[in-house]
Design a protein around this nucleic acid. Structure first.
Lengths: 187, 187
DNA sequence: TCTTCATGTGAGTACTCAATCACTCACTCC
DNA sequence: GGAGTGAGTGATTGAGTACTCACATGAAGA
């Protein structure tokens, strides 16, 4: 290695760049509504090269989804570590707060919402989303020690966040928006 | 009027047919993933005629979404009427059960999920979904007399149903699926 | 330097999509 | 029967779409 800064990246580095930047691309219009050209532009590469890094659009999206889940899970881990007590509800609240901070830019959450929608018809994506939630549920259960009901409510609240963000209810002040958003942290 | 049975429908009748049948078309792949040709086929008309009945695809989808919300709301009304007591939680449970029965074929629920996803980027759809939830939240609050927290939890549980259906978790038997699906009725 | 190989792209292909338009047919009223 | 109106369609368009391939360029060792 002569120079400190290579002009070309390794394929693996590029793949990671794509996974990171594609979140922003897919966040707006999801799997069907986002073109591979948009993903390429977000990553600063040509559209053709996307197909060198990933076999097809479905695999690309599934990889992006998996990447989002690992980011969310590591945020939960930080939240669990920051809990001020080992009381299950305290740990859950701390994880929820860490989640709220992570998704303050909304893109991660929106990809999860779109992934859920695409999972209905695309088996590869469904499998990625299932695997993500499987690991997440088990992690939350184990780290918090919460009851079935507490864990279930934790995820139900997360789903409610999807609704709140997708409708942008925080920018509407009305009784129904206050009811849905009551007690939900946002940064 | 010579014959008892007309061959042609009125435009209004056709529009209603389209609204009803398009639910099945949009349920699988949502707004971006469903073509107007598929919608036309489901309604038994030509693709061109879809554009005589609706100005464009976005308005068509928004109308379908609004139609779904009215169906869900009237199911809730039946549920509320069937409640065995006026205790808020009893009424909410009865409404939830009516909802569970209504969406046993999944299509209505899937359209709501896809509508939520499309609402992120399509303002006309976002407005339709907002209006639908606004009316539904107010109705649920008024009909049940439940507290802010009870109503919020009611909708959070509904959102959890979206996840359960989109991932088809009922066909996977594992600890995490039992946690998410605990106590959720399905018919 | 020269060869080798991975990184990266321009220019396509074959196809699908939403939307339009000229047109036909069914019905009603006189 | 004939004029007028609204229901309904076949054919088309122009703008994309995912995906491919021949080719260029940079890096690094012999």
């Amino acid at each position: 290695m002569k120079t400190d800064r290579r002009q070309l990246s390794t394929a693996e580095e590029r793949r990671e760049t794509v996974l990171r930047t594609a979140i922003g691309a897919f966040a707006a219009r999801g799997y069907f509504g986002t073109t591979t050209t948009e993903v390429a532009k977000a990553a600063g590469i040509s559209q053709a090269y996307v197909y060198r890094l990933f076999p097809n659009k479905e695999a690309l999206f599934a990889a992006v989804v998996a990447h989002c889940f690992t980011r969310v899970r590591s945020a939960m881990e930080r939240g669990a570590a920051a809990a001020t007590s080992s009381e299950p509800q305290v740990v859950l609240d701390s994880m929820g707060d860490a989640y709220a901070r992570l998704i303050s830019d909304n893109d991660l959450l929106l990809v999860q919402l779109h992934a859920q929608a695409a999972a209905v018809s695309e088996p590869v994506i469904q499998e990625a989303v299932r695997a993500g939630y499987a690991r997440m549920v088990e992690y939350v259960r184990g780290a918090s020690g919460g009851s079935e009901e507490q864990v279930q409510r934790f995820f139900a609240t997360g789903m409610l966040c999807h609704l709140i963000v997708s409708l942008d209810v925080t920018s509407v002040d009305a009784p129904w928006t206050r009811t849905l958003g009551a007690g939900i942290a946002h940064y």
